[in-house]
Design a protein around this nucleic acid. Structure first.
Lengths: 220, 220
DNA sequence: TAAATACATACTAACAGTATGTATTTGGGG
DNA sequence: CCCCAAATACATACTGTTAGTATGTATTTA
């Protein structure tokens, strides 16, 4: 294959192939050659021209998949003047999550935590980042400041909720549970969050239900 | 090195070396040769005589480290005739966890989730097993049966508590937090658990404090 | 004493990564 | 607008390392 006038198309192709393979076969289970074989005609030289290592490809593919999801969710906080409590509910409302659900489809990993361990680790790390440096803790603190949230341990509550939402409620690395079980998890999470002063809102149940519908329709 | 009359000694040496290396350098970062180099005089042939793959070595090393910890905790439930609620509290009391804490020292992984991703995945998977097929859910159901526990979503509560205890309260894959932050997590977890009907007991705070002391003394 | 066991030695195939070559595009001076 | 040098986008060919295998040999067991 000759040189492409628009190299970002090549990069996109590489990352698309990489993401799917990393999800299905895991990080270890995917070789650079596996990725190259899906880029018909292209060779390893092209890949190593755009990326300097396998790890960099993985990180780039992961970021590329996550960025629009995170950005959309964060953008939900920028509209109007809401209290902290309202912003918190909005974060778990369908409008913040469901429109991006199809994108999650592209990074549906193998339902085997060990095979997906690297993705799991990214999500685990991301849960702390999301709560600490990201949007969750700031929103809670905003709510405390404006009097709409009463929470004695904002950091801990944010971390716990973030972890449970990312690694348990959305069972990315486990087989899809029956719908009523996923709803039970949402209910349970909401109750636990409420106990530490965080009202996630009733909409979290609808959000969960809609996510389940999309995933189930996609045949997971 | 000649043939050892007691091959289980050889196996133990291999697993000891493997566990430490896997923890410090991660699964990917550890080669079979690295392990062999720590078994002075022994060669790769010996290793592949006792184990058929790197993965099997990892699993064996992990099991070997975890078994006594899990067994001890489970044994705490066998004494006397306790109600489900009493058993639940006992699971998080110092006597169930602290005596085995030194053993955890041997499998202290790198405080980098990605490097430790395989261990993290095992712990993640283990959290579900522990709650579902293990001892936590049975104890809760026993408590419901004998009337000492009122919990509407026993499975969900068990999973959530198990996940938070294993991946958050005991921050194996993250740098050790200041003591007061770990205690805040324990307090927060207890509050959340209480909201879904699980009383982990006040002793969980002492347990956490003692774990912190041991880990901190060990220089983490 | 024959079979099984516990290793050592020597090798292979696959893999991540590198060095280098070559065509194509870009961008600036005339 | 054209020419040419530099940069870019790849391809080709190679290297070192690694997990794993095949096979040989001494020791123990039964």
């Amino acid at each position: 294959m000759g040189r492409n006038k628009y190299p970002e198309e090549t990069v996109a192709k590489i990352l698309d192939a990489a993401l799917e393979l990393f999800c299905v076969r895991g990080y270890e289970g995917t070789s650079i050659q596996d990725i190259v074989d899906r880029l018909d005609g292209m060779t390893k030289g092209a890949v190593y021209h755009h990326f300097k290592s396998k790890e960099e490809i993985f990180n780039a593919a992961f970021d590329r998949a996550m960025t629009p999801i995170v950005e959309h969710r964060r953008s939900m906080l920028d509209i109007g003047n809401m209290t902290g409590a309202q912003k918190l509910k909005r974060l778990y409302a369908p409008e913040s999550v469901v429109p991006q659900i199809e994108l999650w489809a592209r990074m549906r990993p193998a339902a085997d935590p060990v095979k997906s361990s690297r993705l799991l680790a990214m999500q685990y790390q991301g849960s702390f980042d999301e709560s600490a440096d990201g949007y969750l803790l700031p929103v809670i603190e905003e709510g405390i400041a404006d009097g709409s949230i009463a929470c004695e341990c904002p950091r801990e509550a944010a971390e716990a909720v973030s972890l449970l939402a990312n690694l348990w409620l959305l069972p990315l690395f486990r087989p899809l549970e029956p719908k009523e079980r996923m709803l039970a998890r949402a209910q349970c999470l909401a109750q636990m969050a409420a106990a530490v002063g965080l009202d996630l809102g009733n909409e979290v149940l609808q959000t969960t239900a809609q996510i389940w519908d999309v995933w189930n329709r996609a045949g997971w």
